[in-house]
């Protein structure tokens, strides 16, 4: 019997006719950082993951430019998964006539356990493209508070964390105070019955600063920390530009927070690991992955088509990088993944 404690992992996603990803395979690890120019498919990857979760896409908007549209045309995502030592594919298709046509998890003789585990992972995966204005909004409390893709519900999620996992909430407070030393605690306000809003207390003067008055970077840092400290994390989390709006010196902490999700055992945590996908345009953030080129994927765009390549699969990459910083090498263009003239 398989080890039921195993966690499914997506090893790769193949895209066909999906926006700039006409024919592209994205290799994935437990942690993957995707870098590349604008329009190279990074956001499309996140959109694809949302599609897997059930968020609809419009065929005509999603079809790769230049691909003829007829009844036989398909937009396809093939998700190559591994679970308990076995590999199998999940395919998501979209036709001009049937939006969201789905081939659900293929049947695997005698082992519904695999199907269930992988399907559960896909249904609970989370993609975040955080919008600062949404992070600061008061929220109406409900029994289950989940952070939405744009960051809405942050106040509710933190309120639940405080009530249901006070130890983790305290850890989060300590970590936040280290990241942003001007603050020492997350506080809550009740702007109206059944609603919550966040405040941060200043270390000096103990002033309560409402979320609406906090800087973009502060709100984003708080949200990334929250994602890292939620105890019942999804099996897969994808974040668009987690470095966005943050001081470069905080990026090591951001990396550590994401690593905490991906490799909890190495941080002394007993919870299951979360597969993490992040995108970035920051050479400073990229620098932090110099020791693990297998975690970096370069998105390249030529003409209207994008492709992906794992940095560690690039020929002679160690010689190319040798004494350079990874971010500088990427910026220079020697690794690809930079804007090119059409």
């Amino acid at each position: 019997m398989s080890q039921v404690n195993d966690i499914p992992i997506i090893e790769a996603i193949e895209f066909t006719n999906f926006k700039a990803l006409r024919n592209a395979e994205l290799p994935l690890s437990q942690f993957t950082l995707i870098v590349g120019p604008n329009g190279s498919g990074k956001s499309t990857v996140l959109q694809g993951l949302r599609w897997l979760r059930g968020v609809g896409i419009n065929f005509d908007h999603a079809l790769t430019i230049g691909v003829p549209r007829d009844d036989a045309t398909r937009i396809v995502m093939t998700i190559r998964t591994r679970y308990a030592g076995k590999r199998f594919n999940v395919i998501r298709r979209l036709t001009p006539r049937h939006h969201n046509e789905t081939d659900s998890v293929p049947r695997i003789a005698g082992n519904e356990l695999y199907q269930h585990a992988v399907w559960q992972m896909l249904q609970t995966l989370r993609t975040f493209s955080l919008v600062p204005e949404r992070l600061s909004q008061p929220v109406k409390l409900s029994a289950s508070m989940n952070l939405l893709d744009d960051g809405l519900n942050l106040a509710g999620v933190l309120d639940r964390l405080r009530d249901q996992h006070p130890e983790r909430f305290e850890q989060l407070n300590e970590e936040l105070a280290r990241w942003l030393p001007e603050f020492d605690r997350i506080l809550f306000d009740t702007p109206m019955e059944g609603h919550r809003a966040i405040q941060l207390r200043t270390r000096k003067g103990q002033a309560r600063i409402p979320a609406s008055e906090l800087s973009t970077g502060t709100l984003l840092a708080l949200t990334i920390l929250t994602i890292a400290y939620i105890p019942d994390s999804p099996k897969l989390v994808a974040l668009e530009e987690p470095d966005h709006g943050l001081h470069p010196r905080l990026l090591r902490d951001v990396r550590d927070a994401l690593y905490r999700l991906a490799y909890p055992d190495r941080f002394g945590e007993s919870r299951p690991p979360v597969q993490v996908i992040a995108t970035t345009h920051s050479p400073y953030f990229l620098d932090l992955f110099r020791d693990h080129p297998e975690e970096v994927v370069i998105a390249k765009k030529e003409a209207n088509e994008a492709t992906f390549q794992r940095l560690s699969d690039m020929p002679n990459v160690e010689e190319i990088l040798e004494d350079s910083q990874l971010g500088d090498a990427w910026y220079s263009g020697v690794l690809g993944g930079v804007p090119v003239a059409p």
């Binding site: 280290r178 550590d256 905490r260 190495r266």
Partner: peptide, 10 residues
């Protein structure tokens, strides 16, 4: 550090 991915505090 016991890991090749230590966080900064550790």
């Amino acid at each position: 550090y016991g890991t090749d991915r230590p966080d900064l505090v550790t």
